[in-house]
Design a protein around this nucleic acid. Structure first.
Length: 598
RNA sequence: GGGGCUGUAGUUCAGUUGGUUAGAAUAUCGCACUGUCACUGCGAAGGUCGUGGGUUCAAAUCCCAUCAGUCUCGCCA
C-alpha cells in the first residue's frame, strides 16, 4: 500500500507515530516558509504541514502543489500548537509534520470547487461526476447506500433467504410500464425486454420450491421522467412461500425499523408502524401514500352541504361530485396574494378552483360573522359557515380550504394542498421517519380511457378471500391482499399475497380484458407452472433509491446514484444515448428512421 | 405529450427604462508572508451574455425559433 493510514484515523493514533498518507490536496494555505495542506481521502481530511526549516527541497516542491493533485506524504503525528486547533475538523487537534513528499499525479484546475458548500449546475456535476463524487457529502451518501444494502442482505441472510439473480434479458409484456427493448442479433425482428421488475420470475422461484427469495434487483421502465425517477432503479425484491399478509408485514416492519435504528440512529421512528386501510387513507389524506408527519386531516362536507342553496355546491353534488376540505391552523393572516397562489396551485391538479374561509381572531374568541372573510360569504348563510367550521374543527385564526369536484381530482388536489400548507406553515419535523402501512387496496380500478378494468397493484395480486363472490358482479368493490409501506408521503415498498392457482389467475385476466391469445403469449409460463403445485406465496418490493433519499435527507434521486442520468434521461458523462454504426444496426437487422420536422 | 422557471467570466450570481469599456464574489496565475484552516496583503488575467434569426440608430435586455438544465401535470399495472 502507498499509505499506512487513512486521514480520519489521525486523531486516534498516538502522537509521535510515523505514518504515510496519500490522497488529494483539498486546500493549500501558503505562509511563506510554512505551508499547510488539507489532505483528503475517502475517509476525511487531515492537515499536513510542510516546514522550510525541516527540509528546504520538500518545501520547494510543496510550493508547486495545487488543489486536487494526488500526493503521498510521510511524516509524524503531532499535536497542534495551543490556539491553532480547529474544532470544526474531526482531526482538528493534530497534524502531520512532513518528512517526505511524493507527487503521484498532478491535476488541472477542476471545473468547480470540490467542497460540500457549493451549488453547481447539475449537468456540470454529472459531466464531471468523478469530481462531484469526491465531495465528502456525495461519498457519504454512496457509503450510506452501501450500508443499507449490506444491512438488508445480512438481515435476510440471517433468516435463511436465498439471494437469487434473475435475467436482465427477458420478454416484453405490454401491460404496465413501457419496456426497454434489446434487439436480438440471432433472431431477426425479435427482441428481448429489460425487466420492469422480476415479478413473474420470483413467483416461478416459489413454484421451484425456493421458500424465501430476495434480490437487490435492477429494474427498467421507459416512462417519462420525474424528479424522483430514473429509467433504471434498484429494488429490494423479496418473496416467500406459505405466508399470509401478516407475515410479510411483520418481516418488512422488522427490516425497516432495525435498518433505521442501525444506520440513521438520529432519526425518529415509531414502532409498531401505524396501519391504515386504503379507504381510510383516501378519506383522511386524499392519497394512498399519506405523509403522517403532520395532521391537517381532510373532512368530508358533502353530506353536510347536501341541502345547501349555494349554486356551486348544488351543482357539484348533483353531478355526484364531492366537497371536502381541511383547516390550516393559524393561517387566517394569509394575504390575497398568498391565497391566489394557492388557487393557482390547486388548478394545476385539475380542480376548478379553491374555496377559502379565513376566520380572523376576535376579542370574544368566538367565530363572529364579522370575523369571516371568504368569497362564499355572500352566497352561504352564516350558520352554514359555522357548520363547516365546526366540521373542520376550525377556530379563530385559522384558514379553511375547500375543494369541490369529482372525487379523484378533489382528493388529488387536497392531498397536494395539504403537503403544500404543511411546508408553508412549517409543520414538518424533518427528523421523523413516519412509516405507515396502507392495506386493503381495491383489486381493480376502472380506466375510463380504455374502458377496461385495471389492476391497482398488478394482475397477480389475490383478491380478499371473503369477497370472491363479488368478483364477477362488482369488481370495483372488491379489496385485495395488497399492501404498501409509506414513509413521509413516499411509497417506500409495495407487495401482495399472490394468486397461486390457475383458475383464479385466469379469471382475473379475463376481468382485465385479456384475450385467450394474450394470456397464452404473455403468461402461459406462469399458468403452466401453477398446474404443477404452486405454494401459496406473497412478497414485497421496496425502492432502494427512495429509501436512501429518505435516510440521507435529499429530495434528489440523482444524489443517491453514482452515475445517474439527467431528468431527460441523458448521461452527460458518456453522452448516452448515442448513435451507433451502420454495421451494428445491420447486424441487428435494424434500420433507423429520421424523425421529420413537422 | 402539456405547462412553469433558469441559461451572462472556470464556478455562483448581479446587470435599472434597450444607450459609454458587461460587474461582484470565488476559483485561477504572479509576488510577499512561520500557525493557517473561507489564511491574509498587493497585483494580473479571464466574456461567442446557451445557439440561430428578427425588431431597432443601438439588444445581455424586446420578439420568434431552437438547444440544455430543472420543477411540474399527464404517464409510471
Amino acid at each position: 500500500m502507498l499509505k499506512t493510514n487513512n486521514c480520519i484515523d489521525l486523531s486516534n493514533l498516538t502522537l509521535g507515530k510515523s505514518i504515510i498518507l496519500a490522497g488529494w490536496v483539498a486546500n493549500r494555505r501558503d505562509h511563506g516558509n510554512l505551508i499547510f495542506l488539507d489532505l483528503r481521502d475517502q475517509s476525511g481530511i487531515a492537515q499536513v504541514v510542510i516546514d522550510a526549516d525541516i527540509n528546504e527541497e520538500l518545501h520547494k516542491m510543496a510550493k508547486s502543489i495545487r488543489n486536487e493533485w494526488v500526493i503521498q506524504i510521510s511524516g509524524i503525528i503531532r499535536e497542534r500548537p495551543e490556539g491553532s486547533e480547529n474544532p470544526k475538523l474531526p482531526t482538528g487537534y493534530v497534524e502531520v509534520i512532513t518528512h517526505d513528499l511524493t507527487i503521484l499525479n498532478e491535476s488541472i484546475t477542476p471545473p468547480f470547487e470540490i467542497n460540500d458548500d457549493i451549488t453547481v449546475d447539475e449537468s456540470i456535476r454529472l459531466k464531471y461526476r468523478y469530481l462531484d463524487l469526491r465531495r465528502i457529502r456525495m461519498s457519504n451518501i454512496l457509503a450510506l447506500r452501501h450500508n443499507v444494502v449490506k444491512f438488508i442482505r445480512e438481515f435476510l441472510n440471517k433468516r435463511n433467504f436465498l439471494e437469487i439473480e434473475t435475467p436482465i434479458l427477458i420478454k416484453s409484456t405490454p401491460e404496465g410500464a413501457r419496456d426497454y427493448l434489446v434487439p436480438s442479433r440471432l433472431y431477426p425482428s425479435e427482441f428481448y425486454a429489460l425487466p420492469q421488475s422480476p415479478q413473474q420470475l420470483k413467483q416461478l422461484l416459489m413454484v421451484s420450491g425456493i421458500e424465501k427469495y430476495y434480490q437487490i434487483a435492477r429494474c427498467f421502465r421507459d416512462e417519462d421522467p420525474r424528479s424522483d425517477r430514473q429509467p433504471e432503479f434498484t429494488q429490494l425484491d423479496l418473496e416467500m412461500s406459505f405466508v399470509e399478509q401478516e407475515d410479510i408485514l411483520s418481516l418488512t416492519e422488522e427490516l425497516y425499523f432495525n435498518l433505521v435504528k442501525e444506520i440513521v440512529p438520529h432519526k425518529k421512528i415509531v414502532s409498531p408502524f401505524p396501519r391504515i386501510t386504503y379507504a381510510d387513507a383516501i378519506a383522511k389524506y386524499g392519497t394512498d401514500r399519506p405523509d403522517t408527519r403532520y395532521d391537517l386531516k381532510l373532512h368530508d362536507l358533502t353530506t353536510l352541504l347536501s341541502n345547501s342553496e349555494f349554486n356551486i355546491f348544488k351543482k357539484i353534488i348533483n353531478n355526484k361530485g364531492i366537497i371536502r376540505g381541511f383547516t390550516a391552523p393559524n393561517a387566517a393572516h394569509y394575504k390575497r396574494k398568498d391565497i391566489d397562489g394557492l388557487i393557482d396551485f390547486a388548478k394545476t391538479y385539475g380542480s376548478q378552483g379553491l374555496m377559502w374561509i379565513a376566520i380572523d381572531e376576535t376579542t370574544s374568541n368566538n367565530i363572529e360573522e364579522d370575523s369571516i372573510r371568504s368569497p362564499i360569504k355572500n352566497h352561504v348563510p352564516f350558520t352554514e359557515i359555522l357548520q363547516i367550521a365546526s366540521e373542520l374543527n376550525a377556530n379563530p385564526g385559522d384558514l379553511i380550504l375547500i375543494v369541490a369536484g369529482t372525487e379523484k381530482i378533489t382528493n388529488l388536489t387536497l392531498s397536494a394542498l395539504r403537503a403544500e400548507m404543511a411546508n408553508r406553515l412549517d409543520l414538518i419535523d424533518t427528523s421523523v421517519l413516519a412509516f405507515t402501512f396502507v392495506t386493503d387496496f381495491p383489486l381493480f380500478e376502472w380506466d375510463d380511457e380504455i374502458k377496461k378494468w385495471k389492476s391497482l397493484h398488478h394482475p397477480f395480486t389475490s383478491p380478499s378471500d371473503d369477497q370472491l363472490e363479488k368478483l364477477q358482479i362488482s369488481p370495483e368493490s372488491i379489496t385485495s391482499n395488497a399492501y404498501d409501506l409509506v414513509c413521509n408521503g413516499l411509497e417506500c415498498a409495495g407487495g401482495s399475497i399472490r394468486i397461486s392457482n390457475r383458475e383464479m389467475q385466469e379469471k382475473i385476466f379475463e376481468i382485465l380484458g385479456y384475450t385467450n391469445q394474450e394470456i397464452q403469449s404473455q403468461f402461459q409460463q406462469l399458468l403452466t407452472a401453477f398446474d404443477y403445485g404452486a405454494p401459496p406465496h406473497g412478497g414485497i418490493a421496496g425502492g432502494i433509491e427512495r429509501l436512501v433519499m429518505l435516510l440521507s435527507d435529499t429530495d434528489n434521486i440523482r444524489d443517491v446514484i453514482a452515475f445517474p442520468k439527467t431528468q431527460k434521461f441523458i448521461d452527460p458523462l458518456f453522452e448516452s444515448p448515442s448513435k451507433v454504426t451502420q454495421e451494428q444496426l445491420a447486424e441487428l437487422h435494424l434500420e433507423t428512421i429520421e424523425k421529420d420536422n413537422e
